[in-house]
């Protein structure tokens, strides 16, 4: 390739990507870098940045010795572990149950993706309404079975259950859609062969089908974990972290530390922790399924 051709090539390439790169750099990457930098400064909102004082690792020391941060981290881990494993189990079970049912499948799939598209504010409000002690549907249904009304969102354990239930409702469909798509790509001749060898449904499923889509299951799991660690808006509306701090996940803890506690350095230090967790998971996801991999081979 001649030099001039390469140059014009590169120049055209930059014309295509530059607008997007500039906007992402200015309004996404720069804020992320600033979040990390803020962790090392003592600065109050509303004052000029010039007045910010370098504070070194102080914010990190404060945050990492703060029991509230550890409680919040534990809440986040518990939330991610319980909701994601329930979603994986239910999503896989549903996909296996509905897999053969080709009639009406398109309709089912459409119905299933709806919860993911609803605004978090609407999801949070709806569940808050359903869990309402006085007017909520859930207590009304329980009353039919003779169960006394519960103050769902006023009890620490029940409130935690409530945020898990709402997350399961919203995100099990994602696992379902991924598993159904994975199963659709399984080579049927292998299944046929196993069937001829006399494999029963259970053996066929656990020994052949699921191992064949292990890759899809792994990437689904990591994607769900990433989202579980980022969760904020639904919980903000549903419980706002309460009662006490029983449902205060890391994102909400950051938000409250920054905008209610006005402790920006501390909020940024926690942000760095959350960022590291999410970036490690993202790196893992990219290793498993790299959307750029196809082109790397060509070039």
């Amino acid at each position: 390739m001649s030099t001039s051709a390469t140059n014009s090539n590169a120049r055209t390439a930059w014309l295509f990507i530059l607008p997007a790169v500039l906007i992402m750099a200015a309004a996404c990457l720069y804020p992320v870098v600033s979040a990390v930098r803020l962790g090392f400064y003592d600065w109050s909102m509303g004052t000029p940045w010039a007045q910010a004082k370098w504070s070194g690792w102080t914010s990190f020391e404060i945050v990492f010795t703060d029991p509230a941060m550890w409680r919040s981290l534990l809440t986040t881990l518990k939330f991610a572990a319980v909701s994601v494993s329930a979603e994986m189990f239910l999503g896989i079970a549903l996909a296996l149950a509905l897999e053969g049912n080709i009639r009406g499948m398109a309709f089912f799939r459409t119905l299933f993706i709806l919860p993911m598209m609803v605004a978090p504010i609407a999801v949070g409000l709806t569940w808050r309404y359903l869990f309402d002690a006085q007017f909520g549907l859930i207590n009304a249904v329980l009353a039919v079975f003779g169960v006394a009304a519960k103050g769902w969102l006023a009890d620490e354990t029940l409130a935690f259950a409530a945020i898990i239930i709402s997350d399961i409702w919203q995100w099990t469909p994602f696992v379902f859609i991924m598993v159904i798509a994975g199963l659709a790509n399984v080579d049927t001749s292998v299944l046929e062969a196993a069937r001829i060898d006399g494999a029963r449904w259970w053996t066929l499923t656990t020994r052949v089908k699921l191992p064949m889509i292990a890759h899809v299951l792994a990437i689904t799991l990591v994607m769900r974990l990433i989202d579980a660690f980022r969760v904020l808006e639904v919980i903000y509306v549903l419980t706002f972290g309460g009662p006490g701090d029983s449902t205060e996940v890391l994102s909400l803890h950051i938000y409250k530390t920054a905008f209610i506690g006005q402790k920006l350095g501390a909020a940024s230090a926690i942000s760095v922790l959350l960022l590291v967790v999410v970036m490690v998971l993202t790196w893992l996801a990219l290793r498993m399924s790299n959307p750029l991999a196809d082109s790397e081979k060509d070039k």
Binding site: V32, M45, P291
Partner: peptide
């Protein structure tokens, strides 16, 4: 570099950028 940075930015938690975004 651009491709991988883009991929990593996809999962940035919005809570993380709320403070710097307000400031910037």
């Amino acid at each position: 570099t651009i491709a991988y940075t883009t991929l990593m930015l996809r999962t940035v938690p919005l809570a993380v950028i709320a403070v710097p975004v307000f400031m910037i």
